[in-house]
Computed example of a mutant assay.
Amino acid sequence: MSEQVIASRTATARVVEAELAMEPAAVMALRGRENTVDAVLEWFRGFSGVPWVGGRATLTERRLHFEADSLNKMVHAGPTEVDVDLRHVVDVAVKQGLAAGTIDVLLPGAVLQLRCLGAQRFAGQVRRAAAECR
C-alpha cells in the first residue's frame, strides 16, 4: 500500500555526504565557460562549505523524502537522497529569506535543511504530519 502524498516542492537541500563527483576542469569542459562553472560550484557549496543539492522534497503521511534531480545526481558523489521517518522529527523551524525560506528539520543528532518557495506552509505541513505520527 502506497502512502498518500501530502505536499511536494522543488527544493534544495543540504546533503552533508554529497561531494563533487567531477573535477572542476571536467565540469568546465561540459559547460564551456569558466566563470559560469565557478558560480555554479560556489552556489552548490553554499556559505559553509556544505553543498546545496537541487531536487524535490515530498511529504507523505509517514515520511519526508528528498531526491536530487538528474543534474545534481551527475555532479554529486555519494547519497543524493534522504528519507526521514516523521516519528524521528524533533522540531521544525523556518528562517525566511528574500525569495525562499529555509526549513530546518531537527532530527536526533542531525538537521536536514530544505530551501524552497512556500517554506512556511511546507514547514507547517511537516510539523502537523510529524505530530500525527507520534
Rank of each mutant, 00 (worst) to 15 (best):
D91G: 13
F122C: 00
V53Q: 01
L59C: 03
L106D: 01
E67N: 09
V53D: 01
D69N: 15
K73T: 13
F66A: 07
L117A: 08
V92W: 00
V75C: 04
V92K: 01
L64P: 06
H88P: 13
T80E: 03
K73S: 12
A93K: 12
Q125P: 04
G109E: 07
V84K: 03
S70N: 09
G101E: 03
G55E: 04
L117S: 06
L98T: 10
D83L: 15
S70L: 15
A123N: 04
A100S: 12
R62W: 06
L107R: 10
T60A: 08
V84D: 01
G101N: 04
D91I: 12
A110H: 15
Q125L: 15
G55A: 11
E61A: 11
W52G: 05
G55T: 09
A123F: 03
H76D: 02
V84F: 07
L117D: 01
F66Y: 09
G78R: 09
G54M: 10
V89H: 01
Q96H: 09
L98P: 05
V90T: 15
R62M: 11
D85E: 12
P108V: 14
H65K: 14
P51E: 03
A68K: 03
V92M: 07
F66H: 04
D104K: 13
V94L: 04
G55W: 03
E81Y: 12
T102Q: 07
A68H: 01
T80C: 14
V111L: 05
E61Y: 01
A123E: 02
R127H: 13
G101F: 06
L117P: 01
R56N: 08
G101A: 07
T60S: 15
V53M: 05
G97K: 07
F122G: 00
V75W: 07
E67M: 14
H88E: 14
L71E: 09
Q125C: 05
V84C: 07
V82K: 04
R128A: 14
L86Q: 04
G101T: 06
R87D: 10
I103P: 01
L117F: 08
N72F: 06
V111F: 05
Q113D: 04
V126L: 08
R56Y: 08
P108M: 14
E67T: 14
G109V: 11
G124R: 03
L71P: 08
A123T: 05
A110C: 10
R128W: 05
K95E: 06
I103R: 00
G97R: 05
A110S: 14
P79G: 10
G55Y: 02
S70H: 11
H76Y: 12
H76E: 02
Q120I: 11
V75L: 14
R63I: 09
V111A: 06
L98D: 07
G54Q: 09
G124P: 06
L117Y: 09
V94H: 02
T80W: 04
T58Y: 00
H88D: 14
A119M: 02
I103E: 00
L98I: 11
G54R: 08
K95Y: 03
Q125W: 06
A68Y: 02
S70W: 13
D85K: 09
M74P: 02
